[in-house]
């Protein structure tokens, strides 16, 4: 990797991947990727379908563990701890590393229950604490105004955009430090997309956000750094503006100029 993000400060990267290879059976999905992601930044992964960007994102909270035939080499460190060490408890990791999925996937429960879910599975039973955290999370996710009078209504009654903000609130409620987003707006209309993009921008001050997107304009609008993936390789990774205005690699250039994808 040549064009590494320049980070003059001495602080450690929030997430750091070292020589990562991923296999599904005989198929190699990720080819020798190393990358650092810093705290309180938004990092976008772009690339054509099947390039490995989602697979790579899902390494950070070990969501690939359940995929049949999954095998990984290399290290992924979060706050300097290798999360693929034997002793790591996946459940604990995921409380630190939240995830928002492509399609809004609220549980078929009430709005309140959705946001409270993560707290309850951690064994928090104090109603006052839960109430407070639910309110804070909904406020952070910009859903409080719309939802505060309907907390007991089914989450499935919300619109697609509201559902996705609910899923973000659900993630925020457990107070993670990293949020992974896997094409969070691809199923939403333009207005809902804008609201979520604004939200991502606001959340940056408190969280480290990694977002996979199909939409290059979106990457340009919201991210600080962008990585371009192609056929399981990380082709180019640097400051977003730099990548879009001055791509070094011809594959990157072809992709962002819309010649394939």
């Amino acid at each position: 990797m040549t064009d590494h993000v320049k980070d003059k400060e001495l602080k450690l990267p929030k997430i750091s991947a070292e020589d990562v290879n991923v296999f599904y059976g005989d198929f190699q999905a990720i080819k020798n990727i190393s990358m650092d992601i810093n705290s309180n930044t938004v990092t976008a992964f772009i690339g054509p379908s099947g390039c490995g960007k989602s697979t790579f994102l899902r390494l950070f909270n070990r969501m690939n563990d359940y995929v049949e035939g999954f095998r990984m080499e290399g290290k992924i460190k979060i706050d300097d701890n290798n999360i693929y060490k034997k002793k790591v408890h996946v459940e604990e990791l995921r409380k630190k590393v939240g995830m928002v999925f492509q399609k809004p996937n609220p549980f078929p429960k009430s709005i309140y229950e959705n946001v409270a879910y993560g707290l309850k599975i951690q064994g928090i039973s104090n109603k006052k604490i839960i109430d407070e955290r639910v309110e804070t999370a909904l406020k952070q996710a910009d859903l409080w105004k719309e939802a505060k009078d309907n907390l007991n209504k089914s989450a499935l009654a919300l619109s697609g955009g509201q559902q996705q903000r609910l899923c973000i609130a659900r993630t925020l409620a457990v107070e993670p430090s990293i949020i992974l987003m896997d094409e969070p707006t691809s199923a939403l209309d333009p207005i809902s997309t804008t609201r979520i993009e604004e939200l991502i921008f606001e959340l940056k001050s408190n969280y480290t956000i990694v977002i996979v997107t199909h939409n290059m304009q979106q990457a340009g609008r919201i991210s600080d750094n962008t990585g371009f993936f192609y056929l399981g390789e990380l082709i180019e990774y640097k400051n977003t503006k730099d990548l879009f205005t001055n791509p070094k690699n011809t594959k990157t250039e072809n992709y962002i100029s819309g010649r394939f994808g």
Partner: peptide
């Protein structure tokens, strides 16, 4: 049950047991 619900529950740090009884069985 849609796979996305299972993923959401795992993504929140639920154990398989919690995912099964708090999300999958009710759904």
């Amino acid at each position: 049950v849609p796979k996305s619900l299972k993923e959401a529950a795992f993504g929140m740090g639920s154990t398989r047991f919690q995912t099964a009884f708090k999300v999958m069985v009710p759904a």
